[in-house]
């Protein structure tokens, strides 16, 4: 009955989230949790490629921003409903991810990482010069009128983000525990050996990059309605890319729940620090925690717990 435990938790989380929208009346809570959940989706998505497959993506903010600007552009041009915008962002960023997947044919390791960073900055320059979506000056986005069964639009966005976060986690969990996940792990450890052991490396890498891209795009799609003013600086913010790397690294990259732990922990710390101290200082916390974990605990919190258990087991036995 192992599978049921996961889906049971999913059900409990979704019901609790829905009850939360009916019970809490301070909008601040929804703004805060929205940001944490957005970080969680980004972290889970990054980890599918970075943690499972071993390709580091520094351009997460680029995928996110393409999702953001897909919404901005399509909303302005056609005024499409939110589910369609989500789908469109997922498809476009999935295709971008697919292209990144083909890039892995030529670029390994460090070169791939630099190429993703470069791609994000090229995209930022393009958006800076794209007048239709406001260019460098940015643009205002109006929240749609109706808010479905919720009291206001932020509650709807919160619930949407919760569903997306759960879905992203379920996808990541499926990928890591299936045959695909074993193939990805083999690619991460040694791509040449994996190919010679029958692992269809290209196909699996394409699955991995496409899933990553689509999830990041979907994470960005509701963002314009959340902030109501979008400019390239906020959509391509470095902190988005850093968080997407830092959260899995701190939580642990080898397992699906690593980035979830990292995102909840780091997200909670950041939101607390933003309120109580300053938003710049919370950026510093992320940077310092990232560097500390990489140097001192490369397997993250999950790794620390595993080591602790092993030690305890050894002492008892």
């Amino acid at each position: 009955m192992k599978i049921d435990k996961f889906w049971l938790s999913v059900l409990v989380i979704l019901i609790a989230g829905f009850a939360f929208t009916k019970l809490a009346d301070n909008e601040f809570y929804f703004f805060t949790t929205y940001v944490v959940l957005q970080g969680l989706i980004m972290a889970v998505a990054w980890n599918i490629l970075g943690g499972f497959t071993g390709y580091v993506n520094f351009g997460s903010a680029g995928f996110f921003a393409v999702g953001v600007y897909t919404t901005v552009a399509l909303n302005k041009a056609f005024g499409l409903p939110l589910p369609v915008l989500l789908l469109a962002a997922g498809v476009i960023c999935g295709l971008l991810g697919l292209a990144a997947g083909y890039l892995t044919l030529r670029l390994k390791g460090v070169y791939f990482a630099i190429a993703t960073l470069a791609t994000a900055l090229v995209l930022e320059t393009i958006v800076n010069n794209w007048k239709f979506v406001g260019g460098a000056a940015g643009t205002y986005v109006l929240q749609p009128k109706g808010s479905f069964i919720f009291d206001n639009y932020i509650e709807l966005l919160f619930m949407l983000m919760l569903v997306l976060a759960v879905a992203a986690t379920a996808i990541s969990r499926y990928l890591s525990s299936s045959r695909i996940g074993q193939g990805l792990a083999a690619i991460r450890d040694d791509e040449v050996a994996a190919e010679c052991m029958g692992v269809p490396t290209l196909r699996l890498k394409l699955i991995s990059t496409t899933a990553m891209g689509a999830l990041m795009g979907i994470a960005g799609a509701p963002f314009p309605f959340f902030v109501t003013f979008v400019d390239p600086v906020s959509a391509f913010a470095l902190v988005i890319a850093v968080n997407a790397i830092a959260m899995p690294m701190i939580g642990g990259t080898a397992v699906w729940y690593g980035p979830v732990i990292g995102a909840l922990l780091l997200g909670a710390i950041q939101e607390t620090a933003t309120v109580t101290i300053s938003s710049e200082l919370n950026l510093l916390i992320v940077g310092v925690m990232l560097v500390l974990f990489i140097t001192l605990a490369p397997k993250g919190i999950v790794g620390l717990i595993q080591d602790y258990k092993k030690k305890k087991g050894a002492n008892n036995g």
């Binding site: 850093v242 310092v288 990232l290 560097v291 990489i294």
Partner: peptide, 11 residues
């Protein structure tokens, strides 16, 4: 190492 320098840059 790459992620280390990325974090360092940010700090």
């Amino acid at each position: 190492g790459l992620a280390f320098f990325f974090g360092l840059m940010f700090i």
